[in-house]
């Protein structure tokens, strides 16, 4: 019975290769997802800045900073930057969502807006930022579980 040991030793490498490829594809998908959602939020804020928000005191500057930071992070994450760039994107998205919530409640630098105005930009931007946070969180949990396993 020499076939059993042969089967045992030949089977695991095949599984490992496919598993590694799947992991790699998964990581790439998450990375592209984070980059895309960051870029979407950045582009929307740039559009709003160009089309009127630049004239709102403080908020105009905040939109410009948000747009340029998010677009830059999106490009660098897509280019395969280190993990801290993705974390920075996640933290920035949380901050953007907090600012959005403030602007709908107590106001932000004296600026308030109602509901999902301007539509559909507000809703799309919030969805993008929530997705960024979710993907970054998933990415972090995944890397932590791998670290724990090794």
């Amino acid at each position: 019975m020499t076939s059993t040991p042969t089967n045992i030793t030949s089977s695991p490498p095949t599984t490992a290769v496919s598993s590694t490829a799947a992991n790699r594809a998964g990581r790439l998908a998450v990375r592209i997802g984070i980059a895309s959602t960051l870029a979407i939020s950045g582009v929307i804020h740039a559009y709003l800045y160009i089309h009127g928000y630049q004239y709102i005191p403080t908020i105009g500057t905040a939109f410009l900073v948000q747009a340029s930071v998010f677009c830059a992070l999106g490009v660098l994450v897509a280019a395969g930057g280190p993990a801290w760039l993705r974390w920075a994107g996640g933290v920035a998205s949380v901050a953007a969502l907090a600012a959005f919530a403030l602007s709908r409640t107590v106001g932000l630098f004296g600026f308030t807006e109602r509901g999902w105005q301007p539509s559909p930009h507000a809703a799309v931007s919030v969805i993008a930022e929530v997705l960024t946070v979710a993907l970054v969180t998933a990415s972090m949990l995944n890397s932590r579980s791998k670290t724990a396993a090794t």
Partner: peptide, 25 residues
């Protein structure tokens, strides 16, 4: 990478400001 982030952010801000300036008031 950090330097690239800073450069891209500043460059992006410049581009957006320029576009806003050329199309806006």
């Amino acid at each position: 990478w950090f330097g690239a982030a800073v450069v891209l952010t500043v460059a992006g801000g410049e581009v957006i400001s320029h576009v806003a300036g050329s199309t806006g008031a």
